[in-house]
């Protein structure tokens, strides 16, 4: 009898598989959307359409990766869109107006983003202020700094930079991707490795599961929480660099509301907003779902762009409800 009580039993492994359920739902949704698109529109079912989704959303993917780290700890970062805008602005003004080399500008931009994240992380942890309000202040600050630099769009004409932006990396089957896609995928791989194979990554999950427990288990909670916001700041800055590669300009009104897209991608990707559960693969799928919605709407032609927001809102609603049901059943 004793071993009956203590063996987790076959149901445990079944429930273990339930962890992948949200990601599988998202994957299924993606496949369904792609199938419907392929049946409805002629040119839809080509590899390049998928690759274009990556090309058009590489920056969002990077930003969403950073957001995944934050949300996994149970926090939230509202400053990402503003940091993206600030990064495009700093990049553009330094290269166009001051003639800096991209080799100096890009590291500086990444440093600014990380530093901003670091400061926000410290405020959240040491002064115990809600992440929501701290990153809101960060958002105001970053947007405000954009306008201090300039209120108009600044285009980027630096030769090396535009060359990189226009490079198409050929793939078999006459398909291609941009440099941004390669960078974004590299970021995803590094981040996935960090989350799964390093102590920092596991601590992120532990804090999301129960911060109190993580503290009592002797895990470095302070360091991890601050690191997470720093990573998000870094990813936002990198996202900004990719955004400036995509548009070849810097503008203070860039990436308005991107924080919402990033949060939506993470949630649709199956990461619990309360933290502790989710995968980077899900975030990638979430970004693809958002991108595919845009693609389908542009293929449809008669549907206007605002349907994107409505669909994203509906998906958010469904997935949040799903999350709630799953967590309710667990407890």
């Amino acid at each position: 009898m004793s071993s009956d009580v203590l063996t987790a039993g076959p149901s445990a492994s079944l429930r273990g598989r339930q962890r992948y359920l949200p990601v599988m739902v998202t994957a299924g949704l993606l496949v369904a959307m792609f199938t419907v698109g392929g049946l409805r529109y002629e040119a839809f079912a080509s590899g390049q359409v998928v690759l274009n989704v990556f090309i058009d959303n590489a920056f969002l993917l990077v930003v969403a990766v950073g957001m995944t780290f934050v949300i996994l700890t149970g926090g939230i970062d509202l400053s990402v869109g503003a940091v993206v805008a600030l990064s495009t602005m700093v990049t553009a003004t330094l290269m166009t107006d001051h003639g800096w080399s991209p080799l100096a500008v890009v590291p500086l931009v990444l440093l600014i983003g990380s530093a901003l994240g670091l400061v926000m992380g410290c405020m959240i942890h040491y002064f115990d202020i809600q992440p929501f309000i701290v990153t809101l202040a960060g958002m105001f600050l970053a947007r405000g700094l954009c306008y201090v630099i300039g209120t108009d769009s600044i285009s980027i004409t630096e030769e090396g930079y535009t060359a990189v932006a226009q490079t198409q990396i050929a793939l078999p089957g006459e398909m291609y991707v941009s440099v941004s896609v390669v960078i974004a995928l590299a970021v995803v791989l590094v981040a996935a490795y960090m989350l799964h194979y390093t102590r920092l990554g596991r601590n992120v999950y532990a804090i999301g599961g129960s911060e109190q427990s993580a503290l009592l288990m002797g895990l470095p909670v302070a360091r991890t929480k601050i690191a997470v916001y720093t990573i998000s700041g870094f990813c936002s800055a990198l996202g900004g660099v990719l955004f400036s590669l995509y548009t070849l300009s810097g503008y203070g009104l860039n990436a308005l509301g991107m924080e919402l897209d990033a949060i939506a991608a993470v949630v649709i990707g199956g990461t619990l907003l309360t933290g502790g559960s989710g995968y980077l693969l899900g975030t990638v799928l979430g970004v693809l779902v958002l991108g595919l919605i845009q693609t389908i709407i542009s293929f449809e032609g008669t549907l206007s762009s605002w349907w994107t927001k409505i669909f994203i809102g509906l998906l958010l609603f469904v997935f949040i409800l799903l999350q709630r049901l799953i967590s309710a059943r667990r407890s």
Partner: peptide
């Protein structure tokens, strides 16, 4: 005081997982 979202093994060893080159 454990983390319910992590596996049994991880809960036992988190913070002192055996690693090779940080992995």
């Amino acid at each position: 005081n454990l983390c319910p979202n992590l596996s049994v093994a991880e809960n036992i060893l988190i913070g002192r997982e055996p690693r090779r080159l940080g992995r």
